[in-house]
């Protein structure tokens, strides 16, 4: 049987360093791989700018257009809810802020624990909803691959283990916390090699989209 404190210290220590290293190495490699491909020069006379529309789209694409919302309300709502919830839990929970501060040296105000707790509960439910939707919606079912279910799992685990640890549902606590940290580490390790890269590349993709459309005078 594993020693809970040894396990916690392993997840906080060597395993955390491994996860961070694999994550940083994999993600930076991916980003450099993208940027180094570059774009061919565009000789067509532009109708609009690229930079402004590119940055605009980074923000505007977070909200679905009215038509898409009408045609896929569940998809849009559930996707938005769990993404927002995930980031609130990740970035505004005090212990997470302390962790980020210790690694990156930057910090920001957090939310009261009960708020994060409620948000986490909603996020967990929304993610379960998202999984059911993926299994039942004909399009999503058809286009889903093993990777999609793997990514759902590694995203869900930090949430559920975090919820369990916060509510101290597993004894002893070092085991619960260690499981949560390990789940987050699995997430970090898997990130650069799966569609989770969209956490970073979404900004690039949206920028290009906005720039390509923007150049033609369309606000995308």
């Amino acid at each position: 049987m594993i020693d809970p404190m040894d396990f916690l210290l392993w997840t906080k220590g060597p395993m955390f360093d491994w996860a961070i290293a694999i994550f940083a190495l994999g993600m930076l490699a991916r980003l450099v791989e993208i940027f180094m491909l570059g774009r061919k020069p565009n000789y067509a006379e532009p109708r609009g700018g690229e930079w402004g529309p590119g940055f605009r789209t980074i923000f505007t694409r977070s909200v679905a257009d009215a038509g898409t919302f009408q045609r896929a309300p569940f998809n849009v709502v559930i996707g938005t809810v769990w993404h927002v919830g995930f980031f609130i839990a990740l970035l505004l929970f005090i212990p997470h802020i302390e962790l980020i501060y210790s690694v990156l040296g930057i910090r920001w105000p957090g939310l009261p624990n009960p708020v994060v707790d409620a948000v986490t509960a909603i996020t967990i439910l929304a993610m379960i909803g998202a999984l059911i939707h993926r299994l039942r919606n004909p399009v999503m079912k058809h286009i889903s691959t093993f990777e999609d279910y793997l990514v759902w799992t590694v995203t869900f685990l930090p949430l559920i283990t975090g919820y369990i640890a916060y509510h101290r549902m597993i004894d002893p606590y070092p085991l619960a916390l260690g499981l949560h940290i390990l789940a987050a580490e699995i997430f970090l390790i898997v990130l650069p090699f799966t569609k989770l890269t969209h956490m970073f590349t979404v900004f690039i993709a949206r920028w290009y989209n906005g720039a390509i459309f923007g150049r033609k005078g369309v606000a995308s």
């Binding site: 991916r30 791989e33 993208i34 940027f35 180094m36 491909l37 570059g38 774009r39 061919k40 679905a64 898409t68 045609r71 896929a72 998809n75 849009v76 996707g79 919606n137 399009v139 999503m140 286009i143 889903s144 691959t145 999609d148 569609k195 890269t197 969209h198 590349t201 979404v202 690039i204 993709a205 290009y208 390509i212």
Partner: peptide, 22 residues
């Protein structure tokens, strides 16, 4: 044909299926 935008796009697809509704 594969350039930076293409690589960024494929890196970002989450297979949400919303493109089908469009």
């Amino acid at each position: 044909e594969i350039d930076a935008p293409v690589a960024a796009f494929f890196s970002s697809c989450i297979r949400c299926g919303l493109c089908a509704t469009a």
